[in-house]
Each structure stands twice: as structure tokens, then as C-alpha cells.
Design a protein around this nucleic acid. Structure first.
Length: 824
RNA sequence: GCCGAAGUGGCGGAAUUGGCAGACGCACACGAUUCAAAAUCGUGCGGGAAACCAUGAGGGUUCGAGUCCCUCCUUCGGCACCA
């Protein structure tokens, strides 16, 4: 061993050895060991690793190595979320084929990951843009299709003019494209959807099962699904047989309805105004609304604006004739696109009614307030007693909700209804670089699923990339024009590809049997490995990816393809990596390159710093000085072990045990306990590492101050130190392990157990407080009970001085901690 | 507007069940070593002369509060004309 810590030499050396000896080879279906599936969110192959990746994968690597050492059979795979727009943009800009661009990025990033020494078995790598993967993505789409969970419909969809494609609701962030920030517009297109709404109830209810998920993420999913209980009510349109159904959470206010509002896009609007004097002005209004951006349209600050369209509806409860409006504040894609206006008890309706001089009728009053004194200046939306509501007068409104709903249900004019905010998942993308949707359109047979044996539907490679925004697939005749798999007649392929979130909604299943070429996944392996025990990734996927993956898992369970209903048992959302208080980004010019950091300090230092600087869920402020500190610590460990191995061969064995030896043994076991608890119970890697640092600080002192040391105790301390360090700084630990004279890998060592007996101290220092303020300290036997403590403390000379001239009211003694004397 | 998280030295952070606030690291200062520097080792390091005062502000519960309760402020995240 060299005196100097040559991180580059040892890291490269051990990475090669681990690879050659198959240290992290996946053992599928090993019944002798308990399984542990540790998964980090796979990266998009942008070409270069950033610090966020390093953090994500360093955290996962600690968990995987720790669990391996604890004896679990660990699945810790890695792969690539390889479809997506940047590849296609590179193709348009620089003429490189997306496949080539993606694969070369993957190769570069795989090299970068390998250089960091993460414990992956690369033979289990999964790449979503390869036909051996997307074949199964397509197959899964067809399973959804055959089970009625995939359908095509014409709808007003979110269109991103920047990406030239449609977006799922989840991909629109405050009216802008979450990818490129372009303002999203509306477009009517026939698109493919997955029926995630069929699972809304279960996706919501099962959140309760996710005990190992952060509350933050669970709440975000709850908000997103947005369940609200209420009723549907049918209003007949005067003079027709048509009815308009509204959804309301307040059926108790039905007698207070004084108008009704439709969304401008509501299909009945055109029908009801056609050929009437209102037609022109309504068309005008609708056109104006359509041209507004998503932001202007849906902002709560936008003033309410509406228009009477010349028709009336009938309130089914009292037969009243009510004017029908359209207005900007009613949205087509929530509820039924129609709202009953109750101005007295809904602030938005109140604003609208005030502006257009509509009647405001109170139907709920706070208890004790007589009707005639009510002069509303704003809507009253709290609970109260029913008035002006026929037979329901006098009931409290909570009861009336139930009674009115039941009444309407009996009469056939309404029914209880649970409405969700969640919309179906729009999965069509008008782009090339994605998995083709395996559907064919035949003039005779219509929509036809591509038969399983004809999968995959290959992406053609001989296409031209032009900056027209149209998918090159549309103009690729050899792709589009085919024969119908059913009748053999002329047919056309679907040219849309799938949202890449489909690919990432099942990759964790593919990892369980990455080479199965007969199935999307081997059932046996799924039953062994799934669910993922620990999932680790950024909180930005709290809704999209995590909700979609949960949906997939449930749908596949219903189809009998998997036996589990939730994919991820525990979830850790790591914080961002910041520099100068801001997220690292190229545009801000505050990025730190992992490659350069590794070149300068080594992978172990980079990883150690990132784990030490903050607990994983919190944002982490990058500090070059902090990296130096981590480097200094590893050097300190290196020198320490180096000095030990040098002496080991010369000194004779010492069996005597001094106080310092005993303290060394106690600290050894204390550190084992601390690190074990911090890693397994709390994921507090920062405090685990700091306890190792404290241990090293003590060991230096121990060696300097004690020329004669117990050989067994010192050896145990050295071994433990190196083993405890192994999950955090795997290369240096491996090198030091061999320097200690061992031949096997430190990463194959069993994780040490602490000896509770070794933790016991004879004497402990306790604190003496007067009225809760620390005044003195004293050493007492560690096993002293309450009475003993009181006696020791009250008899102590300087304590008598402190309590002089005052009367002792009470003494509180906490064994091992303190004695508090309350005086007056 | 609603929901959630956070606020502790010059900085990153620790305090796990209500029990010594500031572990560990960084930065800084001084000393040792050195011809000198780097590296290393050692000492100090919230404020205050002290009594004491200090965990965003103000109240409360308690023998005792960074930790529990109430009110408020600031920052960040999510949802938002959701009927």
C-alpha cells in the first residue's frame, strides 16, 4: 500500500475487479435469501450525468450495498428512459438519427455511472427505445386496448406549439408546457387515451396503503385526483325534451338556483342558438373565449363574464323557469361543463349575479337569524337552517343534502354522484421518437389491433427529419401503407407514438426479467421481486410518473398479469442540488460537473460529500470547500489504517484491557449501532457519516495517547471502521480491507452487529439543574436510580450552596440524564 | 384563497421519546512542524466582563420547550373560477 491516497488508481482498479468477478450479478429467484428491490428512477439519456443524478444514485447505492451486507438478495438495476423529444430535436438540428444520438449518449452516461462505482449489474440494463423493450410496451398497450382501457376520441386537447405535439393534463403546468415553457393552446384532435379515471377511486383509496411514502407526495396525488362528493341534477330545457345535467356538491341549495351557466364549449350551446337571434352574439363570445390562453381563461382573477343565450331550463324541484347563460368561469372539462347558479351560497355565482342583475335567493340561514334581516354582501357558504325550500324548510343543511339527494333520486331527476378532477390520460404524441401505437385503420374493418405475433411495430429508420413539426412517420409511405391484418385489404398505420410516460410506467417490472423474449415479464420473477421495496427519485415525479405507475400496476393486476396492487412500498424523494442558493442549470451557469469533481477528488469523495452535506430529502447546497473536507476525511482514514498495518506485523499481542481499550470497544459498538440505525431506520446518511468521523477522531487520540493497546480490541475497531465505511465510500473501503490482510470483498462482508453489553458505561455524567437551569454536573454510577440520584445530588457540597436560603419544593430525577431541583 | 414543508452560529447541518442547544464538517484565528510553503498535527471558535441572554416574532402548557398548543411573519413547494 502506498502512503499516498491515490484515489484514481484504486477506484479504477476495483471497478474492474468488481465487474470481472461479477460482484453485483443479479441472482433471480434465490429462495434461500429474503429479497430486496432497491430502485432509483432511471435517467433520460441526455448525454451527461448531472449532480442530481449523482445524488440520486449515491443514495440508492448506499441502500443497495447496506442491504446486501445485511444478507438480502438485492435487485439494484439501472436502465434508460430513452424515448423523448430532445433526441428528435437533435436529429432536426444536426442531422443525427435519434437512435444514434440516444445510444451514444447512453454509452457516455454508462461510462460516467461506472466511474462513480455504483453497484449495478449492467447485464440487466433496460433501454426503452430498443425494439426488445418497446415491443412489450406495445403489447401492454394492446392489453389495455382489449380490456377497454385504451380508446380514441376527438377532444379539445392541450397542444404545445413549441413541441408541436399534444400534452397530457399532467404535463401542463399553469398553462405552460412543462418541458419547454411555451403557452399551451387548445386543439380539437382525435387522440388516444388511457382510462385512468376508471381507477380514480382505487388510486385515491389505496394512498392509505402507502405507509412508506412521504405525506407530501400522497397529498399531491390526492389533490390531483380531486374527489368530491355530491349529486347530479337534471334540468329540462324549456320547450324541448333535452336535459342538461349539472354536478353539484351542494344539492341542499337547489331551491336557490336562479340561473344556469354552460361552458362556452358545451355542445348544446350551438344547438340551442342555431337560427335564433342570439346566434351571432353567442358565436362571437365563444370565439373570443376560445382565443384566450389557458392562463387568461382559468385564472381566478379574471372577471366573470357571461351571456344569456335565449333559452331557459326548469328547476326539477319547484318547476321554476331559469335563464340559461354561457360564461367564462365554467370549464368544459370539469364536471358536466354546466353549473347551477346559486348566488346566495356560492361566491362565484354571487359575483356573476351581481354583475348581471340576477335574483339572489337565500335558502340557508345561520341559526337564529330571521329571514327578513338578511342583506347579503357576499355569498353565505357555511352551514345553517333551510329556508325557502318547500318541505325541506327547517332542516339543517347537512341533513338536507342527504334528503334532497334521496328525493331527487326517487323522482328520477337526480342521483348521488362522485366527481373526480382527474381526466383520462392522453397518450398520443405527434412525434417520431416514441413507441408506435400498434393500431391499423382499415377501410373495411375499421380500427384493428396489430396481432401479437406481428409485434413490435418497428420504427422505420429511413425517415427524414424536417422542422415542419409534423412527425416524419406521416410521410413515410412504407410505414403507413400496409395490408390489414384482418382482411388483407389496404390499410393505414396509426402514425402517433406513445407518451414516454407509458414506457416508464412498467420498466420496474421489466427489470425483474430483462431478457425474457417471450413475455413482457416473467410472472415468477415478478412474484419474487415485486413490489419495489425502496424507490428513490426526485419529487418532480410526485404526480405524473408515480400516479401512472400505480395505475399500470392496478390495471395489470386486474388483467391477472401481476399479483400486486401497488408497485412501490417505500418512496424517498430526494431534494435538489443547489449552487449559490439556486438549482444548478446551464442557463444560470452554476453547474458543477460530476466528471470534473471525480477527476479531481475521486468518486468516493464526491459521493461522501453529497451524502454528508444534507439529509436526502432536503435540498443540498454544493460547496467546493465541503468537498475538500470529505476528501480530507478519507485521507485521514487512509493514513490511519496505513499506520496500523505497518505496526501490526511487529508488535506482540496484548491481552490486557485498559480503560482506553474499553472505551474504544464501547465506541466501536456505539458507532455500529448509530450507523446501522441511521441507515436502516432514518436514511440519515449525514449523521451516520458524522458518527464515523467521530469514531476516527477518537481512534487517533487512542493511538496517540496509548502506546500499549489491546490487540483484539484494536483489530475489531479497524475492521469495523472499514466495513462501516464501505456503503458510503466503496472503493477506499475495499482497498483498506485488503490492506488489513483480507482477501474477499469488503462488500461481501456481513454487516456487523453491535454487542449491547459493550455499550454499557460504569459512570455517566448527569446535569444538575436549579429551576430548569443547568448549574453543575457530576459523575454518578450509570445504574443509579431516582432515589440514589436525588441523594447524591442533594448531598453534594456546591449544590448545598446553590439551594441555600431557599426551600426545596420538589426534586425531579431522570436516571442517566439529570436532576432538577425546584426551589422557592 | 386552500393545502403542505421549512426557519437553529459566519456557512452546511446535529439534537431519534419534552431532559446538557450548536454533534460532525466548512470557514476563520492562534500555535507546532518547515529554510519557506502546501499538507499534517494541536488549541480556540453563538453573544456577553459577568449575572445571564440566545433555536423567525409574540403568547401559553410544563419542574423543564428547538421539540407540544395558540396567534403572527418570512421562504419554498403543490392545488386553484373544481361547481
Amino acid at each position: 500500500m502506498k502512503e499516498r491516497y491515490d484515489f484514481n488508481e484504486i477506484e479504477v482498479k476495483w471497478q474492474a475487479v468488481w465487474e470481472e468477478t461479477g460482484l453485483y450479478k443479479i441472482q433471480h429467484n434465490d429462495p434461500s435469501r429474503e429479497k430486496y428491490y432497491c430502485l432509483e428512477m432511471f435517467p433520460y439519456p441526455s448525454g451527461n450525468l448531472h449532480m442530481g443524478h449523482v445524488r440520486n444514485y449515491s443514495i440508492g447505492d448506499v441502500v443497495a450495498r447496506f442491504k446486501t451486507m445485511q444478507g438480502y438478495n438485492v435487485l439494484h438495476p439501472m436502465g434508460w428512459d430513452a424515448f423523448g423529444l430532445p433526441a428528435e430535436n437533435a436529429a432536426i438540428k444536426r442531422g443525427i438519427h435519434p437512435y444514434k444520438w440516444t445510444i451514444s449518449n447512453i454509452e457516455n452516461m454508462r461510462k460516467q455511472l461506472s466511474r462513480l462505482g455504483f453497484a449495478y449489474d449492467w447485464s440487466g440494463e433496460v433501454t426503452t427505445c430498443r425494439p426488445d423493450y418497446y415491443k412489450w410496451t406495445q403489447w401492454l398497450f394492446l392489453q389495455f386496448y382489449k380490456n377497454g382501457l385504451a380508446y380514441k376520441k376527438e377532444a379539445a386537447v392541450n397542444w404545445c406549439p413549441g413541441c408541436m405535439t399534444v400534452l397530457a393534463n399532467e404535463q401542463v403546468v399553469s398553462g405552460e408546457c412543462e418541458r419547454c415553457g411555451t403557452e399551451v393552446t387548445r386543439k380539437n384532435l382525435a387522440q388516444w387515451f388511457l382510462k385512468i379515471t376508471d381507477y380514480a377511486d382505487r388510486l385515491l383509496a389505496d394512498i392509505e396503503k402507502l405507509k412508506g411514502w412521504p405525506d407530501k407526495v400522497k397529498i399531491m396525488q390526492e389533490n390531483w385526483i380531486g374527489r368530491s362528493e355530491g349529486a347530479e341534477v337534471d334540468f329540462q330545457i324549456e320547450g324541448t325534451d333535452e336535459t342538461i345535467t349539472v354536478f353539484t356538491t351542494r344539492p341542499d341549495t337547489i331551491f336557490g338556483v336562479t340561473f344556469m351557466v354552460l361552458a362556452p364549449e358545451h355542445p348544446l350551446v350551438e344547438k340551442l342558438t342555431e337560427g335564433t337571434p342570439y346566434e351571432a352574439s353567442v358565436q362571437d363570445f365563444v370565439r373570443r373565449m376560445r382565443n384566450l390562453s389557458e392562463i387568461e381563461r382559468t385564472s381566478a382573477d379574471t372577471e366573470k363574464e357571461g351571456l344569456f343565450i335565449g333559452a331557459h331550463v326548469i328547476n326539477p324541484m319547484n318547476g321554476e323557469k331559469i335563464p340559461l347563460f354561457i360564461a367564462n368561469y365554467v370549464l368544459m372539462d370539469y364536471g358536466t361543463g354546466a353549473v347551477m347558479g346559486v348566488p346566495a351560497h356560492d361566491q362565484r355565482d354571487f359575483d356573476f349575479a351581481t354583475k348581471y342583475g340576477l335574483q339572489i335567493r337565500v335558502v340557508i340561514l345561520p341559526e337564529g337569524v330571521p329571514d327578513k334581516y338578511v342583506q347579503l354582501t357576499q355569498a353565505y357558504d357555511a352551514e345553517g337552517i333551510m329556508v325557502n325550500s318547500g318541505v325541506f324548510d327547517g332542516q339543517d343543511n347537512e341533513t338536507a343534502i342527504k334528503n334532497i339527494t334521496t328525493y331527487m333520486d326517487k323522482k328520477g331527476v337526480g342521483r348521488p354522484y362522485v366527481n373526480f378532477r382527474l381526466r383520462d390520460w392522453l397518450i398520443s404524441r405527434q412525434r417520431y421518437w416514441g413507441a408506435p401505437i400498434p393500431i391499423v385503420y382499415c377501410d373495411r374493418c375499421g380500427e384493428v389491433a396489430v396481432p401479437d405475433e406481428q409485434l413490435p411495430v418497428y420504427l422505420p429508420t429511413d425517415v427524414e427529419f424536417k422542422p415542419t413539426g409534423q412527425s416524419p412517420l406521416v410521410e413515410c409511405d412504407s410505414f403507413v401503407n400496409i395490408t390489414c391484418p384482418k382482411c388483407g385489404g389496404p390499410a393505414r398505420r396509426e402514425t402517433d407514438t406513445m407518451d414516454t410516460f407509458i414506457c416508464s410506467s412498467w420498466y420496474f417490472l421489466r427489470y425483474c426479467s430483462p431478457h425474457d423474449d417471450k413475455n413482457a415479464f416473467t410472472r415468477e420473477n415478478i412474484d419474487y421481486w415485486m413490489p419495489v421495496d425502496q424507490y428513490i427519485g426526485g419529487v418532480e415525479h410526485a404526480i405524473l410518473h408515480l400516479l401512472y405507475s400505480r395505475f399500470f400496476t392496478k390495471a395489470l393486476q386486474d388483467q391477472g398479469l401481476v399479483g400486486i396492487d401497488e408497485p412501490f412500498t417505500k418512496l424517498l424523494t430526494q431534494g435538489m442540488v443547489l449552487k449559490d442558493g439556486a438549482k444548478m442549470s446551464k442557463s444560470k451557469g452554476n453547474t458543477v460537473s460530476p466528471e470534473e469533481t471525480v477527476a479531481k477528488y475521486g468518486a468516493d469523495t464526491a459521493r461522501l460529500f453529497i451524502l454528508f452535506a444534507a439529509p436526502p430529502e432536503r435540498d443540498l447546497e454544493w460547496s467546493d470547500a465541503g468537498v475538500e473536507g470529505a476528501y480530507r476525511f478519507l485521507n485521514r482514514v487512509w493514513r490511519f489504517v496505513f499506520a496500523y498495518t505497518d505496526k501490526l506485523n511487529e508488535s506482540p499481542k496484548v491481552e490486557d484491557v485498559s480503560d482506553a481499550d474499553r472505551e474504544t470497544r464501547r465506541l466501536t459498538h456505539h458507532t455500529i449501532k448509530k450507523v446501522t440505525d441511521d441507515v436502516s431506520l432514518r436514511f440519515n446518511f449525514n449523521t451516520a457519516i458524522s458518527s464515523i468521523m467521530e469514531f476516527v477522531n477518537w481512534l487517533y487520540l487512542y493511538r496517540d495517547k496509548n502506546p500499549v493497546r489491546n490487540s483484539a480490541i484494536e483489530a475489531e475497531a479497524m475492521n469495523s471502521l472499514v466495513i462501516l465505511l464501505a456503503p458510503f465510500a466503496p472503493h477506499i473501503a475495499e482497498e483498506l480491507w485488503h490492506e488489513l490482510g483480507y482477501t474477499g470483498s469488503v462488500h461481501k462482508q456481513p454487516w456487523p452487529h453491535y454487542d449491547p453489553a459493550a455499550l454499557v458505561q460504569n459512570e455517566v455524567e448527569i446535569v444538575i439543574q436549579i429551576n430548569g437551569k443547568v448549574k453543575a454536573r457530576m459523575m454518578v454510577p450509570a445504574d443509579a436510580g431516582r432515589e440514589d440520584l436525588e441523594k447524591f445530588v442533594l448531598e453534594k457540597e456546591n449544590v448545598k450552596g446553590l439551594t441555600d436560603e431557599k426551600s426545596v419544593v420538589k426534586v425531579i430525577a431522570v436516571p442517566g440524564k439529570l436532576v432538577n431541583i425546584v426551589v422557592k
